[in-house]
Design a protein around this nucleic acid. Structure first.
Lengths: 205, 205
DNA sequence: AGATAATGTAAACAATGTTAACACCCAAGC
DNA sequence: GCTTGGGTGTTAACATTGTTTACATTATCT
């Protein structure tokens, strides 16, 4: 079988593997990592447990694939939000607005799907979490590059600026996701951190 | 029994509860969260599993107590490192050095005990992770307060500065702990972020 | 159509968290 | 003193889990 996907395919169960990942996603989203189980996923799909072992070698692998999906989804949300920013005549303002949009998207995701965000950045089994979520990382770097070419950020910071921005946004998102921040403080916390990051990038030095 | 602790006490097993928390700590430290198990802790202590249920209502509670210990340990490391900073005639330099010391301590801990750091900031069961680790948070705030009184940091940033510093350091520590950063890049990453934070605090605005 | 690989089921295993019933041991009461 | 009793630990059992083995079914290709 060289065509892994058929359209209305209805052989045994349809496309099980994807269905399993999605079911696992929903389980985690509503019950945390410990709500995930091979047998529970199987039951939710009307399938016996060993069937899943045709598509995943272990529970850890299933969890890992969910985490990959989540990181991808996170990146996609960032590009979507960035594309929704209204262009401005001021190129610098436009670029800054886009930067803010991708940061907000990152934190929004963590706030809306905290359990998913948590499992997305944890080592499961032996699988690596990947070079800090490549898509999201690339988007951020792109933004900072534009800052530099527009003269918003000094060239001297080209290498370090993405690192501090990434750390700050990721830290903020983490704290929001695990409810380290009282929910009433979240808006002010978010605004403060995002403003601080921009401020740090804008600095003339 | 109103005296919960005796010295050479040797009733049944000695002080089991503490021993269990410590054994659990070691299990997590060397095998991740999934290496923790009631039965494994029991075996490691030469005790049967149900004995532990005299001290913990569930595995989740044991894990929670470990996480509390870890957060406390993290705070203690910060005060220790801060106290080891050599005083300087320049009060500002001294304060900045201390600030750097507590930040470095935070990240050092995450790098040395990544698994422990990970479980310290995750919701387990229903227990809250606590208002962002009170001890560490207080230490950071104290530092920023001193910055403000010494005129290093503008008063306008007194409320927001700790938030961005906390986010950035915590994000950096998280990324180091879960190996999102290739180990060869860690030193540069750390230096960049720490410098960026200080730079953001020092800014005159 | 028949061979073959892909996909599913059924039954079993070892290990887990947890509980119930019983045994021990130390301290305090008459 | 002996007994009572609460704190502590053990044994046995249960339900549930991840995983494997053997078998059944279905889809696809020649």
């Amino acid at each position: 079988m060289l065509t892994p996907k058929r359209k209305g395919s209805d052989y045994h169960h349809g496309d099980l593997k994807s269905a399993a990942v999605l079911a696992a996603r929903n389980l985690i989203e509503s019950g945390g990592q410990q709500a995930l189980g091979i047998r529970r996923v199987a039951e939710k799909l009307g399938v016996t447990a060993p069937a899943l072992y045709r598509h995943f070698t272990s529970l850890d692998e299933l969890l890992y694939e969910v985490s990959c999906d989540v990181r991808a989804e996170l990146g996609e949300l960032m590009v979507t939000r960035r594309s929704e920013v209204h262009p401005s005549r001021d190129k610098r303002k436009y670029e800054i607005d886009k930067f803010r949009a991708i940061g907000d998207a990152y934190v929004d995701y963590a706030q809306k799907f905290p359990k998913l965000f948590e499992i997305a950045f944890i080592q499961h089994g032996e699988e690596k979490v990947g070079e800090y979520s490549e898509l999201a990382w690339n988007i951020l770097n792109e933004s900072v590059e534009n800052f530099v070419t527009l003269g918003i950020t000094p060239k001297s910071k080209r290498a370090t600026a993405p690192l501090v921005a990434w750390s700050a946004v990721h830290g903020l998102a983490t704290l929001v996701a695990n409810q380290s921040i009282a929910s009433s403080d979240v808006p002010f916390f978010r605004e403060s951190v995002m403003a601080g990051i921009e401020d740090s990038l804008l600095k003339k030095n």
